[in-house]
Structures are given as structure tokens and as C-alpha cells.
């Protein structure tokens, strides 16, 4: 039996609920986006349901801890094609052994969830550093990012605290997710916000920054391999100093 969800976090939790309710053991829980129809397996379409997902959500907190919920949520943000199944197995083990599931790294599913959550946390931390704002003509600060994982939700709060007196937009161009901050609150949206390139007028400080970046390296220690290890090439096109 394969459960097919809409891929949302609540969708996966709803599927987990149904597995328990129907006393079924689905072989996998997959997102519609990844699912390829095959003829010889049973497929069940799962409808995302707030009440069902809410019950699983609460059970995770009660039986396993907030930390486990955080791990599960972060792992989901990785958008890994097997994350639905792994989360299902993780929750199953967690409901049995409780909080200890966090440490049970001998188990491949627990390890996978743990690794995915770790990857997501690592990339969010990285983006606290390598995200760049450009000042627009109208005074707004705009940032375009293309992270591997869906991290906008995780990083927005940091910038709201830090740049609390400036309005900004963080735009995940891969997923078309926007975080908008107006010096008061953060709003997340998928609705396209038009940013034209002639709205960006920020040459002076970008020039100063590029120049600083070049100057600060020590010639006789040049080490492009090490540089790329810390700051992989795929991120460069949104990085002012190396673009």
C-alpha cells in the first residue's frame, strides 16, 4: 500500500494518522510530486486534514518532546523524496520508545531523519551569513535566495530581529516563497511580487564591498578549493561579491 499526499507537513501527518486509524502499514508515504503510477501496488490518496494532523502533532510533543517535533519538521523542509516514509517510521518508533528516539541513530530511518534535519539546520545557519540584501529605489531591501532546502520560514525571524528598523523582502526564487517584513511583522506568501531590475540602485556600497572582498585575501595563501568547500559554487550567483 502506498499513501499519496499533497506533500505538505500536515499532509504527511494526516497520512500517519490514517495508517494508525486503518490499522495499515503503508510501504511508503510519498508526495504527489514524486509519485509515479505503477499498476501492481495499491495506492491510497490521502486528504490533508487539520484535525488528524493536529492529533499526530500533539502526540509527537507529548510522547517524544518538542525537540523531536523540531527534528521532524526540519527534516520535512529538506523536501527529500523519501522524507514522508522516513517520518512515518520515525514517529512509529518514537511512539514506542518515546524521547529516546532522538538518540537512536543505529536505526536507518531515525538516522535519515536526523541527517536531513541536520542538513536543513546547517543550510539555514549558512544563509544567515550568505544572504545578501540590495537596496531598492523605494528604500526596501530585497534579497533573492535559492537554497537547497525550504528554509525561508526558519531564517526570517533572525532578520526581523536584527534589521528591526528596515523593511525587507526575502525571496526564495526556487520555490517562489516570499517573506515580507515591514518593521512590524513577518508575512509569508506565495504570491508573486514584481521586482524589476531597474528598481535596484545600489552600486556604491556593492562596489565598496566587492573591493573589500578582493583586498582582504592574502595572495600567498590563495586557496580556491577551501573557499568553495565553505561557500559552494551553486550559491554564488546570488552573492554580490563573487557574482
Amino acid at each position: 500500500m502506498i499513501y499519496v499526499t499533497d506533500g505538505s507537513f500536515e499532509g504527511i501527518l494526516s497520512a500517519i494518522f490514517e495508517a494508525y486509524e486503518n490499522k495499515e502499514i503503508p510501504e511508503s508515504i510519498v508526495s504527489r510530486d514524486f509519485y509515479q503510477i505503477s499498476l501492481d501496488t495499491d495506492v491510497k490518496e490521502i486528504h490533508t486534514n487539520e484535525e488528524k494532523s493536529g492529533r499526530v502533532y500533539n502526540a509527537i510533543i507529548e510522547k517524544m518532546s518538542h525537540e523531536a517535533l523540531e527534528t521532524i519538521y526540519k527534516a520535512w523542509l529538506s523536501e527529500h523524496y523519501e522524507v514522508g516514509t522516513a517520518l512515518y517510521k520515525y514517529v512509529k518508533i518514537g511512539l514506542k520508545i518515546g524521547k529516546k528516539v532522538l538518540s537512536y541513530l543505529q536505526n536507518p530511518d531515525v538516522l535519515l531523519v536526523n541527517d536531513l534535519a541536520h542538513k536543513v539546520a546547517f543550510e539555514s545557519h549558512r544563509f544567515l551569513g550568505i544572504l545578501r540584501f540590495k537596496k531598492l529605489k523605494n528604500g526596501l531591501y530585497y534579497s533573492r535566495i535559492e537554497p537547497d532546502n525550504n528554509i525561508t520560514m526558519l531564517i526570517a525571524e533572525h532578520f526581523a530581529q536584527r534589521m528591526s528598523d528596515q523593511s525587507w523582502i526575502i525571496h526564495d526564487a526556487k520555490r517562489n516563497v516570499y517573506a515580507l517584513y515591514d518593521t512590524n511583522e513577518i508575512v509569508f506568501t506565495n504570491e508573486e511580487i514584481p521586482i524589476t531590475s531597474d528598481g535596484i540602485v545600489d552600486t556604491m556600497f556593492e562596489q565598496l564591498w566587492k573591493n573589500y572582498f578582493k583586498t582582504i585575501a592574502i595572495e600567498s595563501r590563495k586557496n580556491p578549493r577551501l573557499q568553495r568547500q565553505y561557500m559552494p559554487r551553486r550559491y554564488w550567483k546570488n552573492l554580490t561579491e563573487v557574482k
Partner: peptide, 26 residues
């Protein structure tokens, strides 16, 4: 920490913003 309407805070763990051509963190 920052106060509302002001600029900036510090992060306990530290944050690297870029890596220069010599591989050192900026």
C-alpha cells in the same frame, strides 16, 4: 540583543558571511 527600531544584534555562535579567495572566513 537588539531593541525594536534599532539595528543589529550579536549571535552567540557567530556567523560567517563570506569566504575570501584564501579560504578564510569573512
Amino acid at each position: 540583543s537588539n531593541k525594536k527600531g534599532q539595528l543589529g544584534n550579536a549571535s552567540m555562535a557567530g556567523i560567517c558571511h563570506s569566504w575570501a579567495d584564501d579560504g578564510r572566513c569573512i
